[in-house]
C-alpha cells in the first residue's frame, strides 16, 4: 500500500458515493449511462471472483463494497428510477467493448485458467467501460455538475494508480504490463474530459462541450 493507491481507492469510493447521492437526492438517474454502470458490475464480478479463495481485510471489504454498490446502482436504475432513464441517448454499442475485451483476454492471459482469463477480461473491459457514459455526455453536449464530479472522481481513481505503479516498480520492481497498459489507456480516455472539467466546472461554469 502506498499513498497513491490509497488516494486512488478513496477517489473510487467517493465516485460511488457521489453517484448514489445524486440519484437518491434527485430521485433521478438522468445523465447516467446505464450501459457504463452495467459494464462496471460485469468488471467487478469477473475480477473479484478471488473473494471465494483469498481474504485480505482491506481488499476484500473494498471488493464487496464495489460489487454491492454497483448492483445497488443498477437496482435503482432498473427499479425506482427507471422512468428517469432515457435509453434513446444511451446508445453506445457495448457489444464491441465486451467482444474486444473477451478476445484480448482469450489471446493474452497470464495463464489459460478461467479465473485468469476472466481477470484479464475485467482489466480490459474496465479500461473502456466509461465510453458509453462519455458518449452520452458528448451526445447531449452538457452534463449536470454532479455528474461531472462523478466522472472526474472515477477518472482520478485510475489516474492515481499510475504513480502507484511507478512507486511500486521503484520500490519492489512490481511490473504488471497488462494492468499498466490498460490503466494508461483508461486514463487517456478521460483526458479530454479532465481538460474540460478543469477549464469549466472548477471555474464555476457549466459543463458544456465547445
Amino acid at each position: 500500500m502506498n499513498i497513491f493507491r490509497l488516494a486512488g481507492d478513496l477517489f473510487h469510493l467517493i465516485s460511488i458515493f457521489i453517484l448514489i447521492h445524486k440519484m437518491t437526492t434527485s430521485k433521478s438517474c438522468s445523465g447516467i449511462s446505464f450501459k457504463s454502470q452495467a459494464l462496471y458490475l460485469l468488471v467487478y464480478v469477473t475480477r473479484y471472483l478471488d473473494l471465494f479463495w483469498t481474504f485480505a481485510l482491506y481488499n476484500s471489504t473494498m471488493k464487496i463494497i464495489f460489487i454491492g454498490s454497483s448492483a445497488y446502482v443498477l437496482h435503482l436504475m432498473t427499479g425506482p428510477f427507471k422512468p428517469t432513464h432515457d435509453p434513446n441517448i444511451d446508445t453506445f454499442k457495448v457489444r464491441y467493448l465486451i467482444g474486444g475485451a473477451a478476445i484480448l483476454a482469450l489471446l493474452f492471459p497470464y495463464k489459460w485458467t478461467p479465473a485468469e482469463v476472466l481477470w484479464t477480461f475485467s482489466i480490459w473491459l474496465e479500461s473502456v467501460a466509461i465510453l458509453p457514459q462519455l458518449f452520452m455526455v458528448q451526445r447531449t453536449g452538457a452534463a449536470e455538475t454532479i455528474t461531472t464530479h462523478y466522472i472526474f472522481a472515477l477518472g482520478a481513481y485510475r489516474a492515481l494508480y499510475i504513480p502507484n505503479w511507478i512507486y511500486r516498480y521503484l520500490t519492489s520492481t512490481f511490473w504488471d504490463p497488462l494492468s499498466i497498459i490498460a490503466g494508461v489507456i483508461q486514463t487517456v480516455l478521460y483526458s479530454d474530459f479532465f481538460y474540460i472539467y478543469y477549464t469549466k466546472v472548477l471555474q464555476g461554469r457549466k459543463f458544456e462541450l465547445p
Binding site: R5, N59, T120, D176, S179
Partner: peptide
C-alpha cells in the same frame, strides 16, 4: 506470475 502481484490491487 505478474498477475499475482496485481491481484493485491483493486
Amino acid at each position: 506470475v505478474a498477475s499475482d502481484a496485481a491481484k493485491d490491487e483493486l
